[in-house]
Amino acid sequence: MAMIEMKDVSKWYGPVQVLKDCSAAVNKGEVVVVCGPSGSGKSTLIKTVNGLEPFQRGDVLVNGISVGDPKTNLTRLRAQIGMVFQHFELFPHMSVVDNISLGQVRVLGRSRDEATARSMKLLERVGLTQHAAKYPGQLSGGQQQRVAIARALAMDPLAMLFDEPTSALDPEMINEVLDVMTELAREGMTMMVVTHEMGFASRVAHRVIFMDQGQIVEDDKKEDFFRTPRSERAQQFLSKILHH
């Protein structure tokens, strides 16, 4: 069963079409990596899934609920989808544990104690228990991104969206974040990941979507994508990104 299903999603910024009839699906428990050159629309595409980027045509269904339908309660839908951003977007004025608890208390209505207990458990899982009382500004980039993952997991999401989670990190911090994501994938989380980390894709992903100029050019099983990409553009992209 498809957890996320996109049907002919098209989006324009004024006269410029940034998404062209994009159709794809992510099944429950599946890890799908979205890659492509910069400006190809990957980040825009992933943000249509929880309605952060509105689109003009087509539709996205999450767990059977339409994102494009104006009657849909987007706020409630978003609470069920975790999202991790390129620049972490932790709330700088709240401690680490409060960052993770905010949504639990304000959206899910958990009690403060309940939320804190859950937050601490998640911090343990991403290996940051001793940083609970610190503020985001006191953590390294890798640590911040792990907190951001914990914050998203605290909402018990049906699926997780990752928008270039490692692009803003120094090289030595990339692996600590990828390890957490790999672990998550092993446990069966449904994940849609925009990334340039082809190593991660070849190890963890089930399928790879390749985008260029707002279009989904390829949507293959991982093995097929890396062994024999069909389109020329994907071949060029792979040769550029793998050979150095």
């Binding site: 943000k47 929880n50 952060l52 706020t75 409630r76 978003r78 609470a79 069920q80 989808i81 999202m83 951003f85 390129q86 620049h87 977007e89 932790l90 709330f91 905010l102 949504g103 304000r106 959206v107 914050r151 998203a152 909402m155």
Partner: peptide, 23 residues
């Protein structure tokens, strides 16, 4: 503030007034 802060609040399922109030 970075545009992402607003997005992060919204993506978490906070309403717009909540996003203003807490984020």
């Amino acid at each position: 503030l970075a545009r992402g802060q607003r997005m992060a609040g919204i993506a978490l399922g906070l309403t717009l007034p909540q996003t203003y109030r807490f984020v």
